[in-house]
């Protein structure tokens, strides 16, 4: 399991390529990347976090996923600080013997990461700046687990 919180961009291709390689018991790898999307006039996004709690919350979420599904490896990379539209904000990867575990664990990780890891997005545009509000649907998504 690897949990990384950093300001710098990450190499998505290299991370995917290097994840859960060199072993023969893995049958399925699921990867997901979240990008800065331009809904309206967005110049840049800034992500604030709670150093210390961020890492422990992400680790706890990944450990819970590993308890619920048969996982052989988990990777979470989440950036903080300023980002521009089109840049990758974060990625996760899960490895399992079979695809269902890898897919479900990846969805679980994303649902929890969105509303239980201490990150806050702020959007900056020509109209000024505003904090992104959490959506009720994100909170509702947790109830299915």
């Amino acid at each position: 399991m690897r949990i990384v919180v950093q300001e710098a961009p990450f190499d998505y291709g290299a991370e995917c390529d290097g994840f859960a390689t060199g072993r023969t018991d893995v049958g399925a790898v699921v990867t997901f990347a979240g990008l800065v999307r331009t809904d309206a006039d967005l110049d840049r996004m800034e992500i604030e976090h709670y150093p210390g709690m961020t890492e422990s919350a992400l680790t706890a979420i990944a450990e819970e996923a590993a308890r619920r599904w048969s996982l052989q490896d988990v990777l979470v990379i989440h950036r903080v600080g300023p980002m521009r539209p089109g840049e990758r904000i974060m990625m996760i990867a899960t490895a399992a013997p079979h695809r269902r575990d890898a897919f479900e664990a990846a969805e679980y990780l994303m649902d929890y990461l969105k509303s239980r890891a201490p990150f806050w997005k702020k959007e900056h545009g020509p109209q000024g700046e505003s904090w992104v509000e959490a959506k009720a649907t994100d909170e509702d998504a947790l109830s299915r687990w």
Partner: peptide
């Protein structure tokens, strides 16, 4: 103790 709005990661 930390106070903050609902989180918006991902």
């Amino acid at each position: 103790v930390a106070f903050f709005p609902p989180m918006t990661g991902g």
